[in-house]
Amino acid sequence: MNRLNSVFADKAGALFIAYLTVGYPSLEETVEAVLLLEKSGADIIELGIPFSDPLVDGITIQQAGTKALQNGVNINRCIEAVRLIREKSDIPLIFMGYYNPILQYGPEAFCANSFSAGADGLIIPDLPPEEAGLLEETALQHGLDLIYLIAPSTPDEKIKYVASRSRGFLYLVSVEGVTGVRENLPPGLQEFVERVKKYAVQPLCMGFGISTPEQAGQVARLVDGVIIGSNIIRHLSDENWRTSLPAYVHELKSFLRIQEP
């Protein structure tokens, strides 16, 4: 059992999965923020690999990525960040990155180096399973879980197909839209999750557009993990993040705990 499987197996209540862009606001602060997030109660970390043209990201994560690229962050630096975090922590780490940088780096080298540095999984939002054959095989050989996404618009047949291939967990995109903080959760989440549960045996995690502790609490009733990104980035953009971020995570966790049976 890898770190990712274990954390789901041992969980009490929904897990909190925190996304941050590697290199925002700086590479050192990414490592520090991950350790602080873990200490404050985060269960899994998604490490965003910055890309010049992040098609499924809203303005907050776009700007974080631009800054990270200006800081010179590339895949090698991201893998280095994983290594530094692994020296101090066993929290599951998942890379989230667009396909082209991974393709140019070389899927084989990427999977091998990521795994040996201590990464556990991989999410590529612009690589659907139909196009992922080679990468999926490579990831599997190297012990990385390739996690796929589905959306509320995904038809049943397709949910079944994607669920049969997603390892680690299945990523449910809550909205038709890009990442970003939104005032309200979209309607119909419960029906969406129920539809997915007919076909999926792995844990289900939901992300995109979830930001407040209250929203996280509502989602936590439905799924095994809640993914929050833009709001973490927002905290990191404030120089007081070392105090504001733990406070936010504590409050968030209290809403996730309420949902425990």
Partner: peptide, 20 residues
């Protein structure tokens, strides 16, 4: 059928766009 012209083409999009 998958939109390939030899080695080029395809459909590299987030799942949300697949139905459209």
């Amino acid at each position: 059928e998958k939109g390939y012209f030899g080695n080029f083409g395809g459909r590299f999009v987030p799942e949300v766009l697949a139905p459209a």
